[in-house]
């Protein structure tokens, strides 16, 4: 079964495979990780079948190995994402994405009267609940729940 799934997107020699991304967030994940501007080879598949998510997306990035801090940013929109670290066509490590304690500059505060929506202020949130992820704004102190999380 695994072998069949791997065939859905062509294999890479070295790099990272990010699996179990909700299909609707594929392009936001690409954005957050800066893959739209990196020079490496990036391949992705979207609207693939998944038991968990209905439709999922997979991204394969050649020759990039993400730091935890960096990859955890996508937990806001892809909390079930799984990483396979590939070396020499082999999976050498598997990782899951973890919710960070703080979220800086990624999400938008859902309170329209918040200073971060009025002036150019980097948003800052404390993660007060990890599942489902719930954010408390450092500035206006209002809650942004997972249904209202909007990526900047």
């Amino acid at each position: 079964m695994n072998a069949k799934k791997e065939l859905q997107v062509s294999a890479i020699e070295n790099g990272t495979v990010i699996d179990h991304i909700p299909a609707e967030y594929l392009f936001q994940v690409i954005n957050i990780l800066g893959l739209d501007t990196c020079g490496n080879s990036v391949t992705f598949g979207n609207n693939l079948g998944s038991d968990k998510l209905g439709k999922k997306a997979i991204i394969k990035v050649a020759d990039i190995f993400f730091e935890d801090d960096e990859i955890n940013k996508i937990s806001l929109i892809a909390p079930h994402a799984k990483l396979n670290i590939i070396k020499n066509y082999q999976v050498v490590e598997k990782k899951i994405v973890e919710s960070p304690d703080k979220v800086v500059g990624i999400a938008k505060c859902m309170n329209p009267k918040c200073i971060t929506n009025v002036e150019e202020v980097t948003t800052r949130f404390k993660v007060i609940e990890k599942t489902p992820i719930t954010l408390k704004c450092h500035y206006c102190e209002k809650i942004t729940d997972h249904k209202h999380i909007e990526i900047i």
């Binding site: 971060t116 206006c140 102190e141």
Partner: peptide, 9 residues
């Protein structure tokens, strides 16, 4: 200030 979070900022 009328905007929420303005004081923290």
């Amino acid at each position: 200030h009328p905007i929420e979070g303005s004081a923290r900022y």
